[in-house]
Amino acid sequence: MRGLAVTIELTLLSMLCASTLAIMMAFGRSYGKQPLPFIALIYEKIFRGIPLIVIFILVYFGLAQIGILIDAFSAAIIGLALHSTAYQIQIYRSAINSIPEGQVIAAQSLGMSKLQAIRYILLPQMLRLSIPGWSNEFTIILKDTSIAIAIGVVELMRQGRYVIVREPSVALYILLVVALIYFIFVFTINRGLSYLEKRYHISGLEITKAR
């Protein structure tokens, strides 16, 4: 079950990096001065346009080529984070944009600085509003960790392959077990986070729900 642990570590670490990066970029895009919004925009376009597997390979071999040798595990985290950030920016941005600008003005008229207004007024609302999109992204990252097999990370999927290679006749069963594990995780994350969503729900504070 080493593979499972690696999968979970990959998911959590890259989620952490991606969320942090994306929240900063989202504020940069909505409230920053040029060229911040432009940089964030270009970033988004590029990393949404390239398959994750290509990003993995570029990070893994690219960093090596410029002399930075990292293991496949770290490369996978960087790749997943870079990729997910591009998608998460939108989650946070639409959350930020659904908070009326008047609230920032009201905060400033109380004497708060722009940073204080972001910290005490925008950020808490944004985080709550982002929970559905965030949980969605969480499950996607979890599933995407399987692609790290391409650069040789021994996660759940590769572990499964090892067993298959040794014992080809049980391939189907092994893979079904692997699938089941993913399914249980995705299911749990969705349930857990929709609980979180209810828990921290504030009446009147919601993005016009998509579904």
């Binding site: 499950t139 599933k143 995407d144 960790t145 399987s146 692609i147 097999i149 999927m157 893979l175 692997v178 699938a179 993913y182 399914f183 995705v186 299911f187």
Partner: peptide, 8 residues
């Protein structure tokens, strides 16, 4: 939707 494409 609950399982990775690669696994499929």
């Amino acid at each position: 939707r609950g399982t990775p494409l690669l696994v499929q």
